[in-house]
Design a protein around this nucleic acid. Structure first.
Length: 398
DNA sequence: AATCCACAGGAACTTACGGGGG
DNA sequence: CCCCCGTAAGTTCCTGTGGATT
């Protein structure tokens, strides 16, 4: 074959269908590996919705990458289709509470994804209306066009306050909706999440709860194999999948991580103009995955949080060796200098303290409050969780 | 065990922004 | 079109607190 004139003309030597290695890719039923009992239980918990009745509210626990969101999405899609055959209209709203963490944002997102303006004549504006207004519109939307609404609240532990849960779980009994009903599927990384809820919400929200165990190396291998169609035939070296699986199994059995590493390994092979994905690329792929995950998280932060994080990372680098803790007092001037370099007005100390505790909540840093002795006051020291160099790179690229 | 104060963090306020209703 | 109302981000003001030193 002659060299193509087009930059895009050559067929990809490594990947046949890269889509299969995207985490958001929702597989067909036979491609969800090792979660049969979980799917079964989930299905039985929400099956009443199929007849238009109120489904059980469900709480799902499990570490990241154990298939919680995947199974929820899959099973609700299946349910929607099955119900449609019975003439029952089900709407599913998926909310990532990490991104929509306030009550208002959550309700708005639910209302927006369940709405169909041309059907209901109801608009859900992005801003400008009160929280209670969003609620009112949501109830109207439900009654107007659906029999059952199912709300999937992913990373529910990142939600501020439990008012939304209160409202959602009581909507039907409080008479907010009359022509329809709704169910909640809550997904949490924290097993202890339930303890932080008040009794009322707890009992109504966790009518059923399940724990998704981490995948073991065998299951990870199966998962990776099931997606190996993403590659052209024969380009994957024998040892690659087992090595990726072993790596991911060691780090909490995170399937998402495993899939990402496999994809990066393929990309690295491609960059080396190698037509084989070799075992030796896996370690580099692993590093690339960590960098990417961090960059992705940091990119979502407000600008000033990035400057702060960068200032902290620089301080940590300067602090010689063993004890890389930096007090808030010390970070602040460094942050101010950084702002001046960029040409931005620095925030006041009080706001900075809030941003730092948000970063701590996201596990990007760790904080500890300490006293320093008589007449020396109390202060908080901050510590980076990840390697300062990687953090700085991620901050600069974002 | 009592003390002392720099910083932590709660509360109330300001500013910016955008939609709804008259 | 203007005015009012809501939220989010940021500021101002001020009381609370940890723990080595006295």
């Amino acid at each position: 074959m002659s060299d193509s004139e087009s930059f895009f003309g050559n067929p990809d030597p490594i990947f046949a269908d890269k889509e299969l290695l995207r985490v958001s890719h929702l597989p067909e039923g036979d491609r969800i590996i090792g979660r049969d009992t979980e799917l079964q239980k989930l299905a039985s918990a929400i099956k009443d919705a199929q007849r238009g009745d109120t489904p059980n509210n469900v709480l799902i626990y499990g570490k990241t990458g154990t298939g919680k969101s995947l199974c929820s999405k899959y099973i609700t899609r299946d349910l929607t289709e099955a119900a449609a055959e019975n003439g029952v209209k089900i709407g599913v709203a998926y909310v990532d509470c990490f991104q929509e963490s306030t009550e208002t944002q959550t309700v708005r997102t639910i209302a927006q994804s369940l709405n169909a303006p041309e059907e209901t004549g109801i608009t859900v504006p992005h801003t400008g209306v009160s929280t209670s207004d969003y609620y009112r519109r949501l109830w109207d939307i439900l009654d107007e066009r659906l029999d059952v609404g199912i709300v999937i609240l992913d990373e529910i532990d990142k939600l501020e306050g439990d008012n939304v849960l209160m409202q959602l779980s009581r909507a039907a009994e409080a008479g907010k909706v009359t022509e329809s009903t709704l169910g909640v599927v809550g997904i949490s990384n924290k097993i202890r999440y339930k303890d932080s809820l008040n009794e009322r919400v707890k009992s109504s929200l966790s009518e059923r709860d399940f724990v998704f165990p981490p995948y073991d190396a065998n299951q990870l291998r199966e998962i990776l194999k099931s997606r190996s169609d993403a590659f052209r035939e024969g380009v994957l070296d024998q040892g690659v999948i087992p090595k990726v699986a072993a790596l991911a199994a060691k780090e909490h059995g995170d399937a998402r991580k495993a899939i990402d590493i496999l994809r990066y390994a393929g990309e690295i092979a491609d960059e080396h103009d190698d037509d084989t994905v070799r075992e030796k690329y896996v370690d580099e792929a692993h590093e690339r995955e960590e960098q990417a995950r961090l960059s992705e998280l940091i990119a979502k932060q407000p600008d000033h949080s990035k400057y702060l994080l960068q200032a902290l990372a620089l301080q940590v680098q300067d602090t010689s060796g063993e004890n890389p803790v930096v007090s808030t007092k010390t970070v602040y001037p460094a942050y101010k200098r950084l702002c001046e370099d960029v040409g931005v007005d620095p925030l006041k100390m009080r706001r900075v303290r809030d941003l730092l505790s948000e970063l701590a909540f996201l596990s990007l840093i760790e904080q500890e409050r300490k006293g320093r002795g008589k007449g020396k006051g109390a202060h908080t020291v901050n510590q980076l969780v990840d390697d300062p160099e990687i953090v700085i790179r991620a901050c600069e690229s974002a």
